[in-house]
Design a protein around this nucleic acid. Structure first.
Lengths: 459, 459
DNA sequence: ATGTGGGCAAACAGCCGACAA
DNA sequence: TTGTCGGCTGTTTGCCCACAT
């Protein structure tokens, strides 16, 4: 790191604010963070999953339950800070949550709390590094369109045209590169300075780099490592069991005292590593669907902190049932998004012992494409976009519900709804969740999840 | 790492057993591990301290107490495994502990449970690397005596005498070096292969390397990094608060259910980073001292899992008081040990709120040497070796005790003691601890710790 | 006894266009 | 359009000894 091509970040005060645009670009198009000040739903179960992945250990069955800890906590999101691992540049976020008491949950909140979809920057490009790019033999071959879009224009009166680029990474470090247009045929290359960057970041072929030209005319530089087998280390600080206990204890304590607690969210640990989905029967089923143009269905595969509005909409305002077809967004190799289609094959608790009646990954799914064998066989309601193949209003038949959906509730997010309407909806939500947990369906022979809809008036 | 001088470890089954001798050599002469199967005392408070150091965060005052969790747990040590960080080679140990119920604590145990002092290997040497050693310009200059003692003898009929050495590190990786005896004057050098090792381990001048020639005629190779400012990263997995909660919850749960739990012990995090000790009054005081030749006082500065026998001896069979002089072992720069002297300046709770009546670092001390300004101002009873300047038997005066030390108890570790004697001692120990916790000294104007001795019959 | 530095040769890093996919 | 290669050159690595401490 002693090369002149690398400059440490300027002091610039105690805490430097990490560039949000770059963070999101590195995190990928599917990762969105809830808005500070908004209400979110926190899933200890999902958090536990992430800790399990990051410690590379499954949750020990010995770990006791916290009976007072429900599967989800409605929280106020007090703070979100974006971070990047100093060693690996891995992005993660720190969130401060405060569970809301019933009184606070009643208070009105703005419908805008759904969260802003992760907006990928426009002037950017992302290239997966080739063997030549990472070899010490040469520099970095810049795709032509990328160079023309993202880099400052070269002075073509020079022979050869060249300039010095200065790019800033997530930590604010500056990297200098010689950008030259030469060769036969002509091409854009980064030469001097490139290998210093590659070795400092320990990039290998298959990793990707990412350049952004932002509104302030700054060049930003990020990396996205390939999904190589995670060399997750067993932490050496705390046993994975203790970590799980700590996560649960922190949430339970915060819930009991309505005090703040802090969690780390690592978007990298989304990535699959799940068993193959079982075979599925494709059964068509009818439903209605309260879709609003403003809703963003681009769910993050394993977000365990999601906007409350998203949760409410998915759990209480969307009817799903076995056999129903759906779409879900995934990130492609080229860091764009595409939809995969699948069919719901079951609705049941992921962990009936520890997390009964949790909505976390309660939907068992089968994927249409054979290449989807590595996708999760279980998703959460808010991650999928049910397909509506029939007219939405009115619902053709009530889906085994004894009575149709209570009027007034579907327009939960309607702009014309008065405060009382919103409050009553929230109260109902709370009551319904409470009812779910106290119900015992044993002996009826049918799991409550097999019913496409739980009407609170049935309880 | 693509050099031919490095070989990955052989498969050799699923789990490779790390070389104990090498681990201890890297950990240093003061680090000893309790014996598997023995009884130990576990201090959540000390564990918490280590987590605080490793996460670089102090314990949040908001963290709730676990009222059911005493400051120390008597446990059976079921398993100890030695580990080394795959990135840094930092050594640490994993221990499986099981809290004992009162019945189990009564059962007889062997006096040998004090633990084996860390036996540093005999055929070894440790050298702090110079600028020349770590420069790319040359190799490694081996001290003459070290080479003659640890390396296989060279064939001096060759000109120059040379051989290939193969050394194995903590992970079982093999490193090949050319060992040559040349130069004017003649000296032992490691040339080819050395720089690969230096760069792979990221060694810098000031770090130390360590060669062992063991009984199986294998060459082992370890490193000990200099105490450079720890670049402790904030984990990005779990918040430090949650970690503390997890640690406490794991211990509390294990204590409540008498089930096993797992902790990591990192001898590196011993190293000071404490505030300067306050000024101290040197007050001489008299005491007696039940010293046994078999006892090992080489305490590890911050072990939070210590042999039960060591705890019992220090807490119940050693009288300490303010003003008393003591010695304590420390590791020197050259990785040997030396004694520092000091004076006890106070005895009180380190954390009167969270950990009342804990023996953890209950002794405030002042150090004789001015260079000792960086040493801990607080130590635990079992870490120090009180100096006996007066005849041991009988005690000149009873130190404000209403009655002398109960007969029979001092010979706790005596070989002639029958089972009943041992059992009654343990029962008394338990009762005494319980009594301590239930007592309330408020209003008496004197802290219980200010009394040099707590006689259980006083309670 | 051992740390540092000059001399020197071999290896590597790294810039170039040629060529092919 | 862009990945890889041979050619070429400047820099670094690394082995040797001299010399100083």
């Amino acid at each position: 790191l002693s090369s002149a091509d690398f400059c440490p970040p300027p002091p610039e005060g105690e805490k430097r604010v990490l560039d949000s645009e770059l963070w999101h670009a590195c995190a990928g198009p599917l990762v969105s963070l809830p808005i500070v000040g908004s209400r979110v739903v926190y899933f200890p179960q999902g958090h536990s999953e992430q800790v399990a992945v990051s410690t590379n250990r499954e949750v020990d069955a010995q770990i006791p339950n916290y009976p007072s800890l429900p599967p989800q906590l409605i929280c106020q999101l007090h703070n979100v800070t974006m971070h990047a691992d100093i060693e690996t540049d891995e992005v993660y976020a720190q969130m401060t949550l405060q569970p809301l008491n019933p009184q606070e949950q009643k208070e009105a909140y703005l419908p805008a709390e759904l969260g802003t979809p992760s907006k990928q920057p426009t002037n950017y490009f992302c290239k997966t590094l080739t063997a030549s790019d990472t070899s010490t033999h040469g520099g970095f071959s810049v795709p032509r369109r990328a160079a023309e879009k993202v880099f400052p224009p070269l002075d073509f009166t020079q022979q050869p045209p060249a300039q010095e680029l200065i790019a800033r990474d997530l930590h604010g470090n500056e990297w200098k590169f010689r950008h030259i247009f030469r060769g036969q045929p002509k091409r854009h290359l980064l030469t001097t300075g490139w290998s210093v960057f590659v070795s400092a970041k320990r990039l290998v072929a298959g990793d990707a780099v990412l350049f952004i030209w932002n509104e302030k005319n700054q060049l930003l530089l990020g990396i996205r490592r390939a999904n190589r087998p995670q060399p997750v280390m067993p932490s050496s600080v705390l046993s994975s069991d203790s970590m799980h206990l700590g996560l649960l204890a922190a949430a339970a304590h915060a819930a009991a005292t309505n005090s703040r607690f802090t969690i780390f969210y690592n978007p990298r640990y989304h990535l699959d590593s799940c068993a193959k989905p079982s075979g599925h029967d494709i059964v068509s089923f009818l439903t209605d669907d309260f879709s609003f143009a403003t809703f963003n269905f681009s769910a993050c595969p394993s977000d365990f902190v999601i906007p409350l509005a998203k949760y409410v909409k998915a759990v209480y305002h969307t009817r799903v049932s076995v056999g129903m077809r759906f779409r879900m967004l995934f990130e492609t190799e080229e860091s764009s998004v595409r939809r995969y289609m699948g069919t719901i094959t079951g609705i049941s608790d992921l962990d009936p012992v520890r997390w009964q009646n949790s909505h976390w990954r309660s939907v068992k799914v089968g994927w249409d494409e054979s290449t989807a064998g590595e996708k999760q066989p279980r998703v959460s309601l808010w991650e999928i976009e049910p397909l509506t193949t029939f007219p939405m209003y009115p619902s053709p038949f009530p889906l085994r519900l004894k009575r149709p959906w209570p009027s007034g509730l579907p327009s939960f997010y309607g702009m014309k709804e008065d405060d009382f309407g919103i409050n009553s909806s929230l109260m109902w939500l709370r009551d319904a969740d409470r009812g779910l947990q106290s119900l015992n369906f044993q002996g009826t022979g049918v799991s409550p999840w097999m019913q496409p809809r739980l009407d609170p008036s049935m309880l």
